[in-house]
Design a protein around this nucleic acid. Structure first.
Length: 487
RNA sequence: GGCGCUAUCGUCUAGGGGUUAGGACGGGUGGUUCUCAGCCAUCAAACCGGGGUUCGAAUCCCCGUAGCGCUACCA
């Protein structure tokens, strides 16, 4: 079992889903999860790009048994360090006549390909260099003439039993004599993958279904290189909302970006697992342990799946709300610090922050939402939002009630939840109105908004002094405004 | 163009020769509470089209259509 990403700088959710399925399959079946880095393309970066991949995998909790940083008996785990293996395998194919040297100019081939495409013809390599005698080819190679090595595709057809799709067949003539070793002696993907999968004794290959058409090529390579091919399973692709391959323009795509937006790794894993796999269609919440216990390839879907950001958000809420208060507070503190949203002293007062987080309670689906429900706790004075303020002004008795509430709260003793509630409701009763008639104006005066945690929690958090001051301040302003109706 | 894969509510999916075609997200409505969130209840919402096989097809087969993928000296 292996996951073999190329170092692209970050772990894409599609890659993450593939990695997860590989991991689950290996764990479920007592296999070994190998991480191999496919860095055969010289053009692409490697070092810093690798970090993002490993970080993403680790964050998700997908620990590899063998691979970078942990080593293992089948190393090295970077293809760039396995060049000798590919050269040796290519030499064997050359010797057996299953491959041949190609001196064609890449630019010329590209032109021909485009020309063929323009005339609606299949853009296959025309086997020009297959016609070269072996002596001539060897002589030109010996002179140092640049050339690639191509696989000689045999006639016939290639079939395999895909673990998620069943039998898949390709006619070899549609496959082309593809390059296995480039002029710079680096292997191409299909070749390196086969040489390594064979050497690493890979039993199962789970990958995206964009690799389906690579599979017959690889199978052909196995046939001439020797070694039993692994079993293949092609997973459905993950698409964006418009039905095309998920990419940056659809929104966040790297798992670390989701992390930074407050998505919990447990939620990410759970959500990814459901993209292309289902337990029974009913149950949706699974821990990693439960996933490894239940995962099986025959419940993997064949249809591409559109990445639903909203459902991820919902699922994150499920996990976030289930976290112990201390943990939620910790996550909120981390986010506040990262965003630089509050002075360090406010963040450091952990017991107050914890009370605030408790008051916000189920309203948060992710730490980032904390301030939506709590900003007023951390400012000297609130500036009511226009809509709510206008509503307050529309109530002629509001100012007077605010003052009465202030007085009632000054008298409430002790200054705790129940006496505060009793004082507030008592006022409503004596005013002959429903509690909401007192509470909503208070909410606007105290928080500046129409939406907040429970009012008694807010009052408690604010403390008697600040509460009373804000109530009276709002009353003052209401009265001033009614003097000058223009505002 | 060629080759391949796929096709159940808007989305993720369960099911599979006879079902009121189930669940979840999202949406609507009602309830609960001081608002919101949450929770509870409830509603709307789907088998791509056409042929065939069959007593019976959404399910099996074929064709079509659509979407996606591959068609590199990328992976």
């Amino acid at each position: 079992m292996r996951f073999a990403p190329s170092p692209t700088g970050y772990l894409h959710v599609g890659g993450a889903r593939t990695a997860l399925f590989n991991y689950l399959f290996a764990r479920r079946n007592g296999g070994t999860f190998i991480l191999r880095i496919e860095d055969t393309d010289q053009i692409r970066n490697v070092d810093e790009a690798l970090g993002g991949i490993l970080e993403g995998l680790r964050w998700l909790g997908l620990r590899w048994d063998e691979g970078p940083e942990v080593g293992g008996p089948r190393g090295p785990y970077f293809q760039s360090e396995r060049l000798a293996l590919y050269a040796e395998a290519a030499a064997r194919l050359l010797a057996s006549g299953n491959a041949y040297r190609c001196f064609c100019d890449p630019d010329e081939l590209k032109r021909r390909r485009e020309a063929a495409l323009a005339r609606s013809l299949p853009p296959k390599y025309d086997r020009t260099c297959l016609a070269l005698s072996r002596d001539e080819a060897e002589a030109r190679a010996a002179k140092g003439e640049p050339h690639a090595i191509r696989f000689r595709m045999p006639d016939g057809e290639t079939t395999w039993e895909d673990l998620v799709r069943g039998a898949v067949t390709f006619r070899n003539e549609t496959l082309d004599d593809f390059v296995i070793l480039r002029a710079d002696r680096h292997p191409t993907y299909n070749f390196a993958a086969v040489v390594d999968d064979a050497a690493m004794e890979i039993s199962h290959v789970l990958r995206g279904d964009d690799h389906i058409s690579n599979t017959p090529r690889q199978l052909r390579l196995y046939a001439v290189l020797g070694g039993r091919p692994p079993q293949f399973a092609h997973l459905p692709m993950i698409l964006g909302g418009d039905g095309t391959r998920l990419s940056k323009r659809h929104g966040a795509v790297s798992v670390t970006a989701f992390r930074d937006e407050g998505i919990l790794s447990e939620a990410m894993v759970n959500f990814l697992a459901l993209l292309g796999w289902a337990y029974d269609g009913e149950r949706e919440i699974f821990t990693m342990e439960e996933l490894t216990a239940h995962f099986s390839l025959d419940r993997v879907s064949k249809n591409p799946a559109i990445f639903n950001y909203e459902k991820l958000g919902w699922m994150n809420g499920e996990y976030f709300r289930a976290l112990p208060l201390a943990r939620r507070t910790e996550l909120v503190a981390e986010d506040l610090r990262r965003a630089g949203a509050l002075p360090e002293s406010a963040i450091a007062d952990r017991s107050f922050l914890e009370r605030a987080v408790a008051a916000v309670g189920d309203r948060m689906k992710r730490p980032q939402q904390f301030l939506e429900y709590a900003t007023y706790l951390f400012v000297e004075r609130v500036e009511p939002e226009a809509g709510p303020w206008a509503e307050l002004r529309a109530k002629p008795l509001a100012a007077a009630r605010l003052r009465k509430l202030a007085a009632a709260l000054e008298a409430a003793s002790p200054f705790e939840h129940d006496p505060i509630e009793a004082a507030t409701r008592g006022l409503a009763t004596s005013e002959g109105v429903k509690a909401g008639e007192v509470i909503m104006p208070a909410r606007i005066a105290l928080t500046g908004k129409k939406v907040s945690p429970g009012i008694f929690d807010v009052i408690l958090l604010l403390g008697r002094e600040r509460t009373v001051r804000r109530l009276r301040d709002a009353a003052d302003r209401l009265e001033a405004a009614s003097q000058a109706p223009a505002a």
